[in-house]
């Protein structure tokens, strides 16, 4: 696998965002423990941990996108365009599927997030991609405005 090279500012930012994501994950786990301590079940066992990890991942990737630390300086513009198209496409699919899952969930045909299982995890994955896509789009729009 080809190693992606980042410049020194990108590296320092990635370390910072990684540290922040780790602290965020720790606090989420702590809050989860407190919630579990008062006998409130918001998600079943395997999915609740995965959801917390997804939250940390979402934060890290979104921060990297926002801080221009997702791709290295040697990425060509064509590669960047293809990557942007893929991210936007996945985000659109994620938003559609997530919306459908929400509608189905509200109609009672699908298990609610508190019931755990693959469907709720899938829904949270879609939310994660949608958030990343939205952050990417906003960043691109702002970047284009700054360049003009």
């Amino acid at each position: 696998m080809k190693k992606i090279e980042f410049d020194e500012l990108q590296q320092s930012r990635r370390y910072l965002y990684g540290y922040q994501s780790f602290i965020l994950l720790l606090f989420l786990l702590l809050i989860d423990q407190v919630i579990s301590g008062i006998s409130t079940v918001w998600a079943q066992y395997p999915s609740h941990a995965m959801i917390l990890v997804l939250a940390g991942c979402t934060y890290f990737i979104s921060r990297c996108v926002w801080g221009d630390a997702l791709v290295g300086p040697k990425e060509t513009p064509r590669k960047m365009t293809v990557r942007a198209a893929i991210i936007v496409l996945i985000a659109v699919v994620a938003a559609i599927v997530g919306g459908l899952a929400l509608v189905m969930s509200s109609n009672g045909r699908e298990s609610a997030p508190s019931h755990g299982g693959g469907s709720s995890l899938f829904l949270y994955c879609m939310v994660m991609w949608a958030v990343i896509g939205i952050v990417y789009l906003i960043k691109r729009i702002r970047g284009n405005k700054e360049e003009n």
Binding site: D7, E8, L9, Q10, D68, G72, P73, K74
Partner: peptide, 8 residues
């Protein structure tokens, strides 16, 4: 030329 991003 330097091998960093424009943002850097």
């Amino acid at each position: 030329t330097v091998g960093v991003t424009r943002q850097t």
